[in-house]
């Protein structure tokens, strides 16, 4: 599906932009945040932390974080949280991107 123009009320809405903070020394590498992030912002890093686990790392499309807060809730170790940056105005690019790349049939995890 393709939108041929911006929605008329696009100025009334905005996309929240989140910043993911990771406390690496607490991570035990269970992988919940990596698996269940709805936008696929995280991946396993190749580095080790002080305990010998692989902490999560932001992928290249890290601006996709919309501060939903699921990683904060699902992390059992209190090692990851998100902070709200300034919300972004909706542009035509965003709408194309969301409708094409984040459609439900798309298997996002294969893109990593």
């Amino acid at each position: 599906m393709k939108f041929w123009r911006l929605p008329l009320d696009a100025e009334a809405h905005s996309i929240p932009q989140g910043e993911v903070r990771i406390i690496e020394s607490r991570c035990k590498g269970c992988g919940f945040c990596i698996e269940f992030c709805p936008n696929g912002c995280l991946k396993v890093s190749k580095r080790f932390n002080s305990k010998g686990y692989h902490p999560p790392e932001l992928v290249f499309q890290a601006e996709d974080c919309v501060e939903c807060g699921l990683c904060t809730l699902i992390c059992p170790e209190f090692a990851i949280f998100t902070q709200l940056k300034e919300p972004k105005k909706i542009t035509e690019e965003d709408i194309q991107r969301v409708t094409t790349r984040f459609s439900r049939k798309d298997k996002r995890y294969l893109r990593r």
């Binding site: 035990k28 269970c30 919940f32 904060t72 809730l73 699902i74 059992p76 170790e77 209190f78 090692a79």
Partner: peptide, 27 residues
């Protein structure tokens, strides 16, 4: 972490295994 005001200082990391769901329930 924003939840740290509810947690005793010096107790985290907890003893639960990696992959255990108890931390999720506490969160």
């Amino acid at each position: 972490h924003p939840h740290d005001e509810y947690l005793k200082p010096g107790r985290i990391p907890h003893i639960w295994c990696p992959g255990c769901g108890l931390g999720v329930v506490l969160t």
